[in-house]
Amino acid sequence: MWSFANPNKFMRVSGKVLPYTAVLAVLLFAAGLYQAIYVVPPERVQGDSARIIFVHVPAAALSIMIYLAMCISSLVALIWRHPVADLSAKAAAPVGASFTALALVTGALWGYPTWGTWWVWDARLTSELILFFFYIGYIALWDAFDDESKAAPAAAIFCLVGSVFAVLAKYSVELWETLHQPPSLTIGGEENVHDVYHIPLLMMMAAFWLYFVTLWLVRVRMEIRSRRIRAIRLAAARE
């Protein structure tokens, strides 16, 4: 596994994997969306608007998974100082932030027909919003340094601190919600998550995940190349 820390090896392997993940993501998106829109029957109470879970749920799930992945990358980068680990967290952050934004927007779009208002301080949406702030902070911190060798460990520290406080925030938001009790986004009870929803949801999850992997690989490759360009420029400036 450590061999991926070598940028050269990473470029070689990722170049081979990339086309497969991209094609698979497209196929799964097509199949999943077809199921979600044409095959699944309208929900009993909410009708067609509930179909948005096929975007909302995978986006929300990935927004948390990507942050976790960034934490692992950051930890590896801090402890073993592997150069690709830094780049990996950096490359994942904007993608994660976009998924978080998507989860928030789809949550609002789902909320409107359900509650009659775009935003309710529902515990999960609120936690998602706080997670979004952590993504923003992480990206802003990377951008604020002139020197990448300082930015990387600083961002890694913030990522790890953020994960602890995101969990703390999640629990305190839940506590806060039980005392203020706003409505929550669910599809009425347990019977609804039966198989008609299950399979397309899993397909969409997989599609989103592969889409993330594709984007992430492209972005890490781009970061490695841009470092290479900077090094060449520096070398040229010295001669």
């Binding site: 706080i130 702030f133 952590f134 923003i136 902070g137 802003a140 911190l141 913030f158 601190v161 953020g162 406080f165 703390l168 925030a169 629990y171 305190s172 938001v173 506590l175 806060w176």
Partner: peptide
């Protein structure tokens, strides 16, 4: 921007 989200749990409690 970095610190205010970290203050959320303290503020809520």
């Amino acid at each position: 921007v970095l610190v205010l989200p970290l203050y959320v749990p303290t503020l809520i409690l």
